[in-house]
Amino acid sequence: MSTSSIIGNQCQPQSKSRPGSLLKHSFNALWLSDIHLGSKDCKAEYLLQLLRQTQTESLYLVGDIIDIWAMKRRMYWPESHNQVLQQLFIMARNGTKIIYVPGNHDEEFKAYAGFHLWDVSIAKEHIHTTLGGQKILMLHGDQFDSQVCVGKALTKLGDRLYDLLLLLNRQLHRVRTHLGYPYWSLASYIKLRVNKAQQAIGLFRAAVVCYAQDKRVDGVICGHIHQPELSQQGKIFYANDGDWVENCTFIAESELGELQLHKWDEQAKCSLVIASISLKRKPKSLKQQVA
Score class of each variant (00 low, 15 high):
S188P: 02
S188A: 12
Y189F: 06
I190A: 10
I190V: 09
I190F: 02
K191T: 13
K191G: 03
K191R: 09
K191P: 00
R193E: 06
R193D: 08
V194W: 02
V194Y: 06
V194C: 04
V194R: 11
V194K: 09
N195Q: 15
N195E: 15
N195V: 14
K196Q: 15
K196T: 15
Q198G: 09
Q198A: 06
Q199L: 02
Q199Y: 07
A200F: 08
A200S: 00
A200N: 10
I201Q: 08
I201M: 09
L203Y: 06
L203F: 10
F204S: 02
F204K: 01
R205G: 13
A206P: 01
A206T: 15
A207G: 11
A207M: 09
A207D: 02
V208K: 06
V208C: 09
V209A: 01
V209H: 01
V209Y: 13
V209G: 05
C210D: 15
C210V: 07
C210E: 15
Y211D: 06
Y211C: 05
A212M: 01
A212C: 00
A212W: 09
A212S: 05
Q213W: 07
Q213I: 08
D214C: 10
D214E: 15
K215V: 02
K215M: 06
V217M: 05
D218N: 08
G219R: 03
G219S: 04
I221F: 04
C222V: 06
C222M: 02
C222T: 11
G223N: 04
G223V: 04
G223T: 12
H224I: 10
H226V: 06
H226Q: 09
H226G: 02
H226P: 04
Q227H: 14
E229F: 10
L230V: 01
L230Q: 08
L230M: 10
S231T: 15
S231N: 14
S231G: 11
S231Y: 08
Q232K: 14
Q232W: 13
Q233T: 13
G234E: 02
G234K: 11
G234Y: 12
K235Y: 11
I236P: 07
I236S: 09
I236F: 09
I236V: 12
F237A: 07
F237D: 04
Y238F: 01
A239S: 00
A239I: 09
A239F: 00
A239R: 03
A239P: 00
N240L: 00
N240K: 00
G242Y: 09
G242F: 09
G242K: 05
D243E: 02
D243T: 12
D243I: 09
D243Q: 08
D243L: 05
D243A: 12
W244K: 06
W244N: 04
E246R: 13
E246Q: 14
N247Q: 00
N247T: 13
C248L: 03
C248H: 00
T249S: 01
T249M: 10
F250R: 03
F250W: 14
F250K: 01
A252W: 07
A252N: 05
A252S: 03
E253H: 04
S254H: 12
S254R: 10
S254G: 03
E255H: 13
E255Y: 05
